[in-house]
Design a protein around this nucleic acid. Structure first.
Lengths: 145, 145
DNA sequence: CCATGATAGTTGCATTTGCAACAAACGCAA
DNA sequence: TTGCGTTTGTTGCAAATGCAACTATCATGG
């Protein structure tokens, strides 16, 4: 009832946010060196993973607002990192595909991102990493759409 | 080296961000009903936890930019949720304290936040929760200061 | 004591963000 | 087929954000 016993240090969302914040902080140097924002990195990583997603797919993966994403994609397109294509199956949809330039930046950033992850997980056994991933997936599923 | 083997579904930062995103989504209804933004909630929770922190303490806990926080605190003060005080020990510092109104809102939101947490952790054993918290703290410490 | 660098907080300003409102296309049911 | 609710994406616009630059204060070394 009352929040008297509310302890941030045992509050899962806080611990999640705090860990995520440190990861972002550790990655920011790499992002800056390629002049890529955190949001742009997430978009790049998502496209890398998905192949040729539509914007709404990227929205689902990144939690970026559709209007924000639309303008973000616009900027990245203007910069030559990706291009928009019309979908044959759904003429509302805008498919997004990496250009060579975008792919090159993603290829450069991915190892840096993995390095940050390794340093975040330093001292973790493979089993602990698997356990963590499983627990995070269960949180995601528990609050599922 | 190459990102060919880069799989988002096994990428810790992605899984973290995704889980955190769902939690925020699940909590947003409650926040809206008190007209409190996510950032404001984090500030309230931090003050609740800390007692009478200075702004820089809140910055450390929430990763909110100092300039953003300054204006956010200003707005919350204008709305009567908290008040700023001068510190005796350090005349640069601005101490922040909840008002009765702010405390009442925090007291109302904390149970809602705990309910979201419970629903996020549905099916978790106490041991799994403890394990998750421990792993998140280790990530935080690994990337520390 | 003074000098130098670090810390706390605020403001200017340009960029980013996200809510509404909108247009276009889809899907399904009657 | 038509109609209606949903989905996809874009824009207007106000609010939020974050980097710089600045002031004031602290703290440490000489």
């Amino acid at each position: 009832m009352d929040g008297a016993q509310f302890d941030l240090d045992r509050f899962t969302p806080y611990l999640l946010n705090r860990a995520a914040g440190r990861i972002v902080l550790a990655f920011e140097k790499d992002l800056d060196s390629y002049d890529i924002s955190l949001g742009q990195w997430r978009v790049l990583a998502c496209i890398w993973h998905e192949g040729t997603p539509m914007q709404s797919d990227i929205v689902r993966h990144t939690s970026i607002d559709p209007s924000t994403l639309s303008r973000m994609i616009g900027g990245m397109e203007k910069r030559g990192l990706l291009k928009r294509e019309k979908s044959d199956l759904d003429s509302r949809a805008v498919l997004v595909r990496l250009t060579g330039k975008g792919r090159k930046i993603a290829e450069a950033l991915i190892p840096k991102a993995l390095a940050v992850e390794r340093s975040a997980l330093e001292g973790f056994t493979p089993n602990e990493v698997a356990k963590l991933h499983g627990l995070l997936r269960r949180i995601y599923a528990n609050l599922g759409g």
